[in-house]
Design a protein around this nucleic acid. Structure first.
Length: 103
DNA sequence: TCCATGACCGACT
DNA sequence: AAGTCGGCCATGG
C-alpha cells in the first residue's frame, strides 16, 4: 500500500525524474501528481536535508527564475549546479524553458 | 484541535 | 506590461 508514500514523497520522485541539464517549474512538477499544488512542492523541497539524492536545483519558478533570495547561499549553490549541467542563464538571470524545460 | 504560513501559479484589472 | 488576490495541501505551535 502506498500509505507510506504520501503526495509529498511522490513529488520528490517526480523531481528525481528530471534529467540533468533540464529544469521544471513547481507547477509542472505538481501537475504530475494529482492532489498536489505548487506550494506543496516548495514546502517539500524546503524540508530536504543536505546530501539528499533529490536534484532540487532543477526546480525553478514559472518565471524561469530561481525562487530564492539572491542573498541566500542556496541561491548561488543552485545556480552553480545548474550551470555545471549546461543550463544557461540570461542576462536577467532567467532560464529559457523553451531550451532547457523538461516538459 | 484550530490557526497561520510556505523555495507558487493563474486569472483578472 | 506589471501588480494584486485567492486557492491548493502539509507541518508546527
Amino acid at each position: 500500500m502506498d500509505s507510506g508514500r504520501n503526495s509529498f514523497d511522490r513529488l520528490l520522485d517526480v523531481v528525481r525524474d528530471i534529467p540533468a541539464g533540464r529544469v521544471a517549474s513547481y507547477g509542472q512538477v505538481s501537475a504530475q501528481v494529482l492532489g498536489t499544488t505548487p506550494r506543496m512542492v516548495g514546502f517539500a523541497l524546503s524540508g530536504l536535508e543536505q546530501g539528499t539524492d533529490v536534484p532540487w536545483h532543477r526546480v525553478i519558478n514559472a518565471a524561469g527564475r530561481i525562487s530564492l533570495p539572491q542573498e541566500d547561499g542556496a541561491y548561488a549553490e543552485q545556480r552553480a549546479r545548474l550551470e555545471a549541467e549546461g543550463v544557461e542563464f540570461s542576462t536577467s538571470d532567467r532560464i529559457d524553458f523553451d531550451a532547457f524545460g523538461w516538459l
